[in-house]
Design a protein around this nucleic acid. Structure first.
Length: 299
DNA sequence: ATCCAGGCATGCA
DNA sequence: TGCATGCCTGGA
């Protein structure tokens, strides 16, 4: 099964898949094509031209084309107004530069459970290690899928992990995060299953911001999920673009360029970023993160 | 070899 | 409410 996705704006696969928002997509040809999981199958993403992606699925059976298209549209967030977003983020010379350097980077809408696990494991770690942790989980408890002679694994469901102990996670190298993950799986919070909550967050409803805040608080009641991880989950899996996760890179960047070198805490920087970039703060954060890590050698 | 990460919970002022 | 400290382990 194959569909084409057309964007008015530029789409850059390397910016999008290497910026650190998502961990289980791989390229075997230096960024020309990417493979990774979408729902219960594997997709191959290739670029036809700078505005057009071709998405192929490994499975032609047990999924219909309209459902596949809906999933793909959602994953690639095709209804984001990219030009408006870029324009409103480019608030000064530095941000204009960053928007131009990262042109074509798109925020993706990730699977909720997988994203939560990934970011619970991400704390005080690094991308290679997070990737390796997730690979261990998927290869042990997920389902093997072969596509184009490459091996991939679907991500395990919560059910698949119900009987896995903290000890096992430690043996898999998750360190002290093992406890958080085991606890998350076994005491899976009830509010995550209340589907109306998720739905209202997914839509653009008038009382969205208070719901967004409430949901953020609930996420932080989960052991091992603090402000930064909650923001990442809500941004990447729940599509709340108004969030501005502040990690060490963002902190370095903000202190260097926007507080005149004055040290402040993460909370203040988060508030500052959300104020500066409004409803597109999540995009701004991704652009800045990409820029800070890969293009600003002083940081 | 160390050293310290894409944080968090905890305990103390 | 704000800040220091320990936590696992493997990239760099």
């Amino acid at each position: 099964m194959e569909i084409e996705l057309k964007f008015k704006e530029k789409y850059d696969l390397i910016h999008t898949f290497e910026c650190g928002q998502i961990f289980r997509f791989e390229t075997f040809d230096y960024g020309k094509t990417y493979y990774g999981p979408l729902k219960n199958h594997i997709i191959k993403i290739s670029q036809k031209d700078i505005h057009t992606l071709v998405i192929q699925s490994n499975s032609d059976s047990n999924i219909d084309i309209s459902e596949f298209r809906r999933d793909v549209n959602q994953f690639f967030r095709i209804s984001d107004n990219y030009f408006e977003m870029q324009k409103s983020i480019a608030i000064d010379d530095l941000m204009r530069k960053i928007v131009s350097v990262t042109d074509g980077l798109h925020v993706l809408k990730q699977d909720k459970f997988e994203c939560m696990v990934a970011y619970i494991l991400s704390q005080c770690s690094n991308i290679p290690r997070i990737k390796s942790n997730l690979y261990k989980l998927a290869s042990k408890y997920g389902k093997l899928i072969i596509m184009d002679k490459h091996e991939f694994y679907t991500f395990p469901t919560r059910n698949d992990l119900l009987n896995v102990t903290e000890e096992t996670y430690r043996e898999m190298g998750f360190g002290y995060r093992a406890k958080y993950l085991a606890n998350f799986i076994s005491n899976y919070p009830k509010f995550l299953e209340e589907s109306n909550f998720n739905k209202s967050l997914d839509k653009n409803e008038p009382n969205r911001s208070s719901q967004s805040e409430e949901f953020n608080k609930k996420l932080k009641t989960i052991e091992g999920i603090g402000q930064k991880v909650a923001d990442c989950i809500q941004l990447f899996a729940y599509g709340d673009l108004s969030l501005y996760p502040v990690d060490t890179w963002m902190k370095k960047f903000m202190i260097k360029y926007y507080t005149h070198g004055n040290k402040t805490n993460e909370r203040e920087l988060r508030t500052m970023g959300r104020k500066m970039f409004g409803k597109w703060a999540g995009y701004a954060q991704e652009f800045i993160f990409r820029y800070a890590r890969c293009y600003d050698i002083d940081l």
